[in-house]
Amino acid sequence: MSGSPILRLLLAVPGLALLILFFLLPLGAVAWQALAGDAIQRVFAQGDLLAALGNSLLLGLEAGLASVVLGVAVALHLARLPPGRRALLQVVIALPLTFSGLIVAYGFILLLGRAGFATLLLAELGADPAAIAAFLYDRPGLVLAYSYFLTPRVILTLLPVFANFDHRQTEAAESMGASRLRALIDILAPQVAPTVLASFALVTAVAFGAYGTALALVGTQINILPLRLYSLIADAGADFPLAAALSVLLLAVCSFLMAVAEIAAARSEADHHVRT
């Protein structure tokens, strides 16, 4: 679009104002609060906060890994379907993305809680309802619930790459003497690895920072960073500097993961452009 530089500047003002007011200023305030006092030192002095960081990382990695393993399998299957059926299934798969974390948590409670539908069915078969509920209301349950809405993300990011892969390459490898598995490992895997890694980093970051589902499912009984942060703000004894320090920590980990994802995605992009 052409026009005078002043007009263009004016058009940018609302967006810029929003960015400053609701992103840069709060972020600056949080960073300032975290770094000004001794909040950061207090985080590292408190063993249970460090444990929360560790638990969150573990939860993120577990949920990320589960979603990627599941997502890769489903995406591989979808890529082989005729386009019409693939499109239909894609809609179904994308559906969980639109659910709020609270609804997902509630759904899992209805299914696997102490009086859940599946729990009662399993109890008929002799399983202990308390054990199932204990599973749901702890980290394994969170991994399950997170995977529920992270797997579709993985599928939708991987599908185009898998669907566009030229299978004559694996046919060629087979004609040269490779088994089907060997062809997939040698030929397909290296070409899709960057996208899979990017997708893993992305969902791990989401799982690391997610708190709605966790709060609804396990309350504050589990020691993970987002819930600790929540307690520091919501509970009676609010400690804003400490909350700010945790926020910065959370932000740093997520930024690092997103950077990994971006770098991996850029690499796969470069690989794809070049193919003739």
Binding site: Q169, E171, E174, S175, A178, I187, P190, Q191, D271
Partner: peptide, 20 residues
């Protein structure tokens, strides 16, 4: 007999070179 044991050299229409 599967393709890999037939010991055939094949040149494909689009060459099917491995881009990586």
């Amino acid at each position: 007999v599967p393709t890999r044991l037939r010991n055939l050299g094949i040149v494909f229409q689009n060459y099917a070179l491995f881009p990586h």
